[in-house]
Design a protein around this nucleic acid. Structure first.
Length: 902
RNA sequence: GCGAACGUAGCUCAGUGGUAGAGCGUUGCUUUCACACAGCAAAGGCCACAGGUUCAAUCCCUGUCGUUCGCACCA
């Protein structure tokens, strides 16, 4: 959005809605006037959503577009409903991703980060961040995100850094953060440790090698081990068998030769071994396998690390030192073959951990890292979900969340990267004591030496993310914003980061604020392509929301997502659907154009949205549309409150298109083009008020088009900004009293008559130019009155040449030849002789009778069942009786008409 | 192995313990003065299958089959 025209309005009103033109002007108009600002302190109730901070390297993708649209719709709706609504934006430094981008840039200049040195490299990343870091923010504005930009936070801002150090120090002092030599998942590509959840397991077709480990006293015989990773035998320190395995009992405590090395290793017994798998003998490599690590600890075995940080073999690899794992494996296998120690190779599929960022195979590697003890943090985080303080939508994710917490492992938080929050720990070079502090210490806590060296490692990006709900609000300072907005209300995010982010925010919120960070978690699904495949660059099926917005407009894209989203479910993105909602925008636009034309002479009332018409001058359609509007508003309210966005969107779509446009606007044409000024004025007021409310109701879903329209409405506030005016639409029910139900129901009868006549027209292929003569024969005084009052509607909408209303019950007295009777509430006789194929008409009627009789039989059967009458609620039984009566009437009417047709 | 979700109209999907819904597509008719990105009408479904609970099941329970997705194990 680069336009700063300052002007919101464009006076062109073409018959196509032009989103580009509108959107360009609108966003800057909003942000210049700070319509999205929330107040730190306010008499209004607070509402707060924290934006999951996108990676600073990021581009808006369609998944963002979905999540952001939901958050925006909710925030705008709350803001318009009288809340002090805050949607707090920010971006994430995304350690690995961002460092990776800059390293690749350096590679193009044939440089590496190590050549540059830490300080220069970090400067370089900052430069990059300054240059490109706001791309995603620009894109968020394209989609209409109504964030409070003045509160924008970046995860490396000083405030957040302070929060990070405070948390680190406090957890350390509590004994919940520790440093230790452990087996961790290691990415040779990043040359950094990873947390367990950053490792993605993939099924790989590998080979199971059967290798003989010769006995010490008989080198032609030995124990056979089966392994998928023969190269790791260089780090073997034992072989293990099951203690109950009779085949091997006699070898326990003895030794075998470790091939290719000249070392001798013991045979140990451990229940970890599965007797059935392979040969029942397992090589133990504690430094390169998590299970072996556990066995090694139990048996107090030594650990031999054979790998360097970059994944090549180190000096413990002997002649294989310097080779990459894959190469070493090949060579080891060749050498084993040469020595006749490789007995068998068989195909074997197993799952292998990969670094989820780079895709490289992750190696278990022994190294010194920092960890967070999770168990005591996890316990309260479990409790708040179990007791319903925090709820997941859909609820099924609760189980996933709890399962993870029940099996939680300590969190490895140190990363051997340079871009991120550097760990606030300093080691004394004299006494080696570690000082952990928020601010750089001047001397060692223990020996007062000034020779301190800070940790090189940075924290896992998710460490700062875990603090996001309170660090963004000013913590560790007790700010007004923090008091007002914490706990926040809803978190909207994808299920892929429940463990990475959601769970950790809950833990940290409880630990440091003593309260949950949010109350509801809405989990969204993935957006897939039309065939249901994941979007990926390699498949070339990625849909770029920025391109969509460019072609179809932001509102169309938003509505497409809103109308189809269902909590936790994947969404297949289809272009025909998008076109459909683009058409809906156009429909809104044209309905407005028509309305404004009708209202061109209309004088806005002094009391604005509260102005009531004179009821005696209203037509049935007026009562009807306001009644329907009231229902629609209530539905939207209820659906949004329960986060059922698609139901809210569909209720609106249906109401606006099929009730307001298809019926109301058509129905009032005779009135507004008619010659009765009082009635015209009354209907104009209803139209103006209804349009005002529709536009406001639509606004959270489609902000651009509605703001554009709002500025042109005859009834609106002085500022002409939809967001700031007339809040509390739902609580302001004054005007909705126009929607009197009994009068609304009268129009239903008219609608039914018109539909019936149209049906005859359509079925008999009678052209619109051909005018019909119709007699309407009411059954009672009530319907007679309604028909008389609405004759103009029927004539116009059913395109009749002649429409007369008979005396009550005068069906048979009609002078014209009746051929078709279709409405069931009243009798409608249509004079059609000569244009209709009577045989076809009879067939249709017979078919209808058949279907109705089937329905009737079903209801009769139910009513005949005394258990039904006894057990079902009274209203259900009563309704059944009413339905039965109606069905009988319908059938009778149709049978009468069959008689007339023959 | 453990767990979860899904299976509804040709397609994509909503939905509900009490007579099946939408959009798109299809088939007619119409360029009527807001909109052809439109209007009107129509066709199209044993709501995966089998049991159970219930007066009543597409909906609740169990099982089967099918499709996904997590987690764990995999020497």
């Amino acid at each position: 959005m680069t336009s700063t025209s300052g002007s919101k309005k464009n006076d062109e009103l073409g018959d196509r809605y032009n989103p580009k033109d509108v959107e360009k002007r609108m966003y800057s108009w909003w942000s210049e006037r700070r319509f999205f600002s929330a107040q730190d302190k306010s008499t209004k109730p607070p509402f707060c959503i924290i934006l999951p901070p996108p990676n600073v390297t990021g581009q808006l993708h369609i998944g963002h577009a979905l999540n952001h649209t939901l958050q925006d719709a909710l925030t705008r709706w709350k803001r318009m409903s009288g809340f002090n609504a805050l949607w707090l934006p920010g971006t994430d430094h995304a350690g690995i991703a961002t460092q990776g981008v800059v390293e690749r840039e350096l590679a193009k200049e044939n440089k590496t980060r190590r050549e540059l040195g830490r300080e220069k490299f970090v400067d370089r990343v900052w430069e990059w961040k300054k240059k490109y870091g706001d791309r995603i923010v620009e894109q968020m504005k394209f989609i209409g995100d109504s964030c409070d930009w003045d509160r924008f936070v970046f995860t490396l801002d000083e405030g957040v850094s302070k929060a990070v150090r405070r948390v680190f120090v406090q957890l350390y002092k509590k004994g919940l953060i520790y440093k230790g030599q452990r087996l961790v998942n290691w990415s040779p590509k990043l040359e950094s440790a990873l947390s367990d959840i950053e490792v993605e397991h993939k099924e790989i077709k590998g080979t199971l090698y059967h290798i003989r480990y010769p006995f010490t006293d008989n080198s032609t015989d030995g124990l056979v081990v089966a392994t998928t990773r023969p190269e790791t035998l260089l780090g073997d320190v034992a072989v293990a068998v099951h203690p109950d395995d009779e085949r091997y009992a006699k070898y326990i405590g003895k030794s075998v030769h470790l091939p290719l090395t000249g070392r001798m290793i013991p045979v140990v017994a451990d229940t970890y071994v599965d007797k059935e798998f392979g040969s029942g003998v397992v090589k133990i490599t504690p430094a390169h396998d998590f299970n072996d690590y556990a066995v090694g600890m139990r048996h107090k075995l030594p650990m031999i690390n054979i790998l360097n940080r970059d994944g090549t073999l180190n000096e413990s690899g002997g002649v294989y030192a310097g080779l990459k794992v894959q190469e070493a494996r090949k060579r080891v296998v060749e050498d084993l073959k040469a020595q006749n120690l490789l007995l068998k190779e068989e195909a074997h599929t197993h799952s292998v951990g990969h670094d989820s960022r780079t895709g490289a195979v992750a190696e278990p590697l022994l190294s010194e890292q920092w960890f967070v003890k999770m168990e005591s943090l996890a316990r309260p985080a479990k409790a708040v979900v179990e007791n319903g303080t925090i709820t997941f939508e859909p609820e099924a994710w609760t189980k996933t969340y709890l399962h993870w917490l029940n099996n939680i492992q300590d969190w490895c938080i140190s990363r051997q990267l340079w871009w991120g929050h550097r760990i606030p720990a300093w080691t004394c070079e004299v006494c080696a004591h570690v000082t952990v502090a928020e601010e750089t210490p001047s001397q060692c806590e223990k020996c007062q030496s000034a020779n301190l060296k800070q940790e090189d490692d940075v924290l896992d990006t998710w460490f700062s993310s875990a603090l996001w709900p309170f660090s963004t609000l000013g913590w560790p300072n007790e700010t007004e914003a923090l008091k007002t907005f914490y706990p926040t209300d809803v978190l909207i995010t994808g299920h892929d980061i429940i463990f990475f982010w959601v769970a950790r925010m809950i833990m940290m919120g409880l630990e440091f604020r003593g309260d949950v960070p949010f109350r509801k978690v809405l989990i969204t699904g993935l957006i897939r392509d039309a065939e249901g495949r994941k979007m990926s660059k390699s498949l070339g099926n990625v849909i770029d929301p920025v391109e969509l917005i460019d072609e179809f407009g932001a509102d169309s894209v938003r509505f497409t997502l809103l109308a189809q989203v269902a909590a936790g479910k994947d969404l297949k993105f289809s272009f025909p659907r998008l076109e459909g909602y683009r058409n809906f925008m156009n429909k809104i636009w044209n309905a407005t154009r028509f309305s404004l034309q009708v209202l061109s002479e209309f004088a806005p009332p002094a009391d604005g949205v509260k102005a009531l018409p004179k009821f005696e001058n209203l037509c049935d359609a007026d009562f009807w549309i306001v009644h329907k509007l009231g229902e629609c508003e209530a539905a939207v309210q209820q659906h949004l409150e329960s986060l059922h966005f698609s139901e809210a969107a569909n209720a609106l779509y249906d109401f606006v298109w099929h009730e307001f446009c298809d019926w109301y606007l058509e129905l009032i044409k005779p009135v507004v083009y008619g010659d009765k000024p009082d009635e015209k004025a009354a209907t104009q007021l209803v139209l103006a008020q209804t349009l005002n409310r529709i536009i406001r109701l639509l606004h959270p879903f489609v902000p651009f088009i509605t703001e554009e329209i709002y500025g042109r409405l005859p009834i609106r506030g002085a500022e002409a900004c939809i967001i700031d005016e007339y809040p509390n639409q739902r609580s302001d029910q004054t005007w909705l009293q126009v929607g009197r139900k009994e009068r609304a129901i009268e129009l239903d009868l008219v609608v039914e008559v018109i539909s019936a006549i149209r049906n005859i027209r359509g079925e008999n292929r009678i052209k619109p130019g051909e005018e019909l003569k119709v007699r309407l024969a009411p059954k009672d005084e009530g319907s007679q009155k309604i028909l008389q009052a609405n004759r103009a509607y029927v004539t116009k909408l059913a395109k009749l040449g002649d429409c007369q209303i008979n005396e009550i019950g005068s069906l048979t007295k009609c002078a014209l030849t009746p051929v078709a009777i279709h409405s069931f509430r009243i009798d409608v006789i249509v004079y059609l002789e000569g244009v209709v194929d009577l045989g076809e008409e009879r067939k249709r009627i017979e078919k209808t009778i058949e279907k109705l009789q089937k329905d009737k039989a079903a209801i009769e059967g139910r009513l005949a069942n005394e258990n039904f009458v006894k057990n079902a609620p009274a209203e259900v039984v009563a309704e059944g009786r009413v339905q039965l009566g109606e069905l009988s009437n319908k059938i009778q009417t149709l049978q009468d008409s069959l008689v007339r047709l023959s």
